[in-house]
Every structure is written in structure tokens, then in C-alpha cells.
């Protein structure tokens, strides 16, 4: 018998899909902006590929930033699964979960029933690192987008030194998101196979399932 539990709020699912789709757009357009692989040889074609790619990149950047604001809000004001204390490996419960997850993921010891409905601590930690990386991307991105705005100029110079360094870090961190996405999708499929909690459908429906002894 399985019991259905509401796990992810609508806001969290909204965050997830805003984040995921904006990352896809940002990576594709970002590669183009860094190294445009087309060359408009026809004069006056008025196709503006670079202008369009940059425009899409900026729009996706705003969606990405909004998604991060939602996630930060939910870390503090979300439901039990969404709050940061459910993830940070500072409590005994979370440290135990981290250790068990590591053993489970490396096929050493099967984890039994989950002690929680939300993220395991390893996944949760990876997400925190990703959110941090996203904040660096947002800072470097807005510094490059608004180079003459005193706010971004001040912060940008303080953090990155100059525009080129911020471009460099912006580009390197993009690879974190690509690699993260690949591992994330794999681990979700893996967990869906190993555990009957319905982790993949939960990001659409918001519900997870737990085993009941009935």
C-alpha cells in the first residue's frame, strides 16, 4: 500500500521549471554569444542573429533570476521539505541522512525507508551549491548587462575586478550547470527506479508516495 503526501508547493514546482527551462535557453544562447557559429554574409539581411540571441539570453536571465528569488524565499518561508534546515548537514538527523545517502548511492548499503519526504541531504546540498553558483551568475550577468549602472559597476568591480574576469567566471560556471543538469536527470531516473516514491512525477504533481505497512 502506498500513501500519497503533498510534498512540493506550486511555487517550488514553478521555480523548478522556470529554472530548468531558463538554463536550457541560457546555455544555448550563451554559447552563441560567446562564439557565434554563424556568419551573416549577406549585407542588409536584417536577420540580427547576435541581437536576437542576446535578447533571448537576457530574457532567460531575468526568468533565471526570478526563479532564484523564489527559491531563496522558499528556503526560509517554504513548507517543511523546502526549508533550508531540512537540508543543511548541521543537525544529527541530516548528517545521518547524508551518510546513508552516500552509502546508498555507492551501492554499499541499501537505504531503508526514507526518514524524510523532501530532498535527501546530498541532493539538497548540491542544490544549495547550484543556487550559490546561480547567484554568482546573476551578479556577473547583470554586471555585464548594466556596466554603467553604479550599483552593478561597484559590485562587479569589487567581486570580479573587471568585465573580462566576470565574463570568464560566467562562462566557467555555465559548465557547472550543464554537468549538474546531466547528473540531476540521471539521479532522478536512478531514484525513480530504486524507490517507489515517484520522484519524477512529484515535480509535476507535487505529490510523493510512502510505503505503508497495511
Amino acid at each position: 500500500m502506498y500513501e500519497k503526501h503533498p510534498c512540493w508547493s506550486i511555487l517550488l514546482r514553478l521555480f523548478h521549471w522556470m529554472f530548468a527551462l531558463s538554463i536550457v535557453v541560457l546555455v544555448v544562447t550563451g554559447f552563441y554569444v560567446n562564439s557565434p557559429w554563424t556568419n551573416t554574409m549577406l549585407e542588409s539581411s536584417q536577420s540580427w542573429p547576435m541581437a536576437w540571441m542576446r535578447y533571448l539570453h537576457f530574457v532567460a536571465g531575468y526568468v533565471f533570476s526570478a526563479a532564484i528569488i523564489i527559491r531563496l524565499f522558499l528556503y526560509i518561508f517554504g513548507n517543511q521539505q523546502e526549508r533550508i534546515w531540512d537540508i543543511l548537514p548541521v543537525t544529527r538527523r541530516n548528517l545521518r541522512n547524508l551518510w546513508k545517502t552516500l552509502l546508498h548511492y555507492s551501492y554499499i548499503k541499501e537505504a531503508g525507508q526514507h526518514d524524510r519526504l523532501g530532498h535527501n541531504v546530498l541532493a539538497g546540498l548540491t542544490y544549495i551549491v547550484t543556487v550559490f553558483a546561480a547567484i554568482v551568475q546573476i551578479c556577473s550577468g547583470f554586471y555585464m548587462l548594466y556596466p554603467e549602472a553604479a550599483f552593478w559597476e561597484g559590485w562587479g568591480v569589487a567581486i570580479f575586478g573587471n568585465q573580462q574576469s566576470s565574463r570568464y567566471i560566467h562562462h566557467l560556471l555555465m559548465w557547472w550547470f550543464i554537468i549538474f543538469a546531466m547528473i540531476h536527470v540521471y539521479m532522478c531516473i536512478w531514484n525513480d527506479v530504486k524507490r517507489p516514491e515517484g520522484v519524477i512525477s512529484s515535480i509535476f504533481t507535487g505529490d510523493k508516495f510512502t510505503h505503508t505497512k497495511a
Binding site: Y107, H171, W175, I179, M182, Y186, K194
Partner: peptide
């Protein structure tokens, strides 16, 4: 940067492949 990124991505993909293979083998 991109050749480093591609290589790290390749290593990650290989690691995922091994991880999945171990799971299936087990």
C-alpha cells in the same frame, strides 16, 4: 575553458555510465 568543460562533462558522463552499469550488474 570550453575544452576543459567538455572533458569534465565527458568524464561525468563516463562516471554516470559506470554507476548505472554497476547498478544493473548488481
Amino acid at each position: 575553458a570550453d575544452s576543459v568543460g567538455t572533458k569534465v562533462l565527458g568524464v561525468t558522463a563516463a562516471a554516470i555510465g559506470i554507476h548505472a552499469a554497476v547498478g544493473i550488474g548488481k
